[in-house]
């Protein structure tokens, strides 16, 4: 197995005229082909910066990002574009990530126009296949985003990300804006597509349940650094780092106990 994406000692520092802020502090990850990595952390932990560096949208201050063996920072515009064809991205807010004035088919056509030579009937066929893949009826082609539900918009977002048949899909909180029943539909869809197309996933999420469901491996980030990594099952079942333990404890689930017990026992011990 070879790594599709790897970063070594990646550093990214944001500098404004007065202060500087280290968003990534020597981050090293290896993402094997066909695996699914979950990146967990709270806002400001550097998750998004990491993804933007992998995509080549941000230039790292130090260290390197390699995509399929090639150094992203040294890629020419043409090579960068060729790389982006092999990477699809799904965004957090499905409605806002679509241009409000573009129809479903125009949105899906956008990456196809940029990355392929498909035009005319071939382009239409590719759009049709992309819609089929996410189980959206062809009748939705001419709809605008506001005429669709949040879940349908996210299906369009996934269709667009997969239209060019990428190998790597970056998922930025793909279900956090959706209701649970819709979240379940989208998670099932992503699982199916991953198996069918042998995709590699990198998913940013703050929901540990979603990470446990969709990811093989997980890295936990805190203030730009990786504080814990391992297989999702192990890390989430027996977290080692204090921060991960807090995170796991903080996620309320239907199976966990009421906070009131925690509260009562704490008050009793303090008395």
């Amino acid at each position: 197995m070879s790594a599709l994406v790897s970063t070594s000692s990646l550093v990214h520092e944001f500098t404004s005229h007065r202060s500087s802020h280290v968003a990534l502090d020597h981050v090293t990850v290896e993402i094997e082909k066909g695996t699914s990595l979950g990146v967990v952390g709270e806002s400001g932990s550097g998750k998004t910066t990491l993804v933007r560096c992998i995509l080549g949208l941000l230039r790292p201050t130090g260290g390197s990002v390699r995509f399929d063996g090639a150094e992203v920072a040294r890629m020419s515009t043409k090579e960068l574009r060729a790389m982006r064809r092999r990477v699809g991205m799904v965004f957090q807010n499905p409605v806002m990530a679509l241009d409000p004035r573009m129809t479903v088919e125009e949105s899906i056509a956008e990456p196809l126009r940029v990355h392929t030579r498909l035009r005319g009937a071939d382009l239409q066929r590719a759009i049709g296949e992309a819609l089929d893949a996410v189980a959206l009826p062809q009748a939705h082609r001419t709809r605008l985003p506001h005429q669709l539900s949040g879940g349908q918009c996210q299906r369009v977002g996934i269709a667009r990300a997969l239209a060019t048949h990428p190998e790597l899909v970056i998922l930025d909180e793909p279900t956090s804006a959706l209701d649970v029943s819709v979240q379940a539909q989208i998670l099932n869809l992503l699982t199916d597509l991953r198996v069918e197309r042998d995709l590699t996933f990198v998913m940013i999420s703050h929901s540990l349940d979603v990470v446990r469901y969709l990811s093989d491996d997980v890295v936990v980030m805190l203030q730009g650094r990786i504080v814990e990594e391992g297989t999702a099952a192990e890390v989430l079942a027996a977290p080692q780092h204090e921060y991960t333990q807090n995170l796991v404890a903080a996620c309320p689930t239907v199976e966990s106990d009421s906070l009131r017990f925690a509260l009562q026992s704490r008050e009793e011990t303090s008395k």
Binding site: R81, R84, A97, G157
Partner: peptide
């Protein structure tokens, strides 16, 4: 959606 278009390339 502009960020999305940029990410697509």
């Amino acid at each position: 959606f502009v960020a999305a278009a940029e990410a697509i390339g």
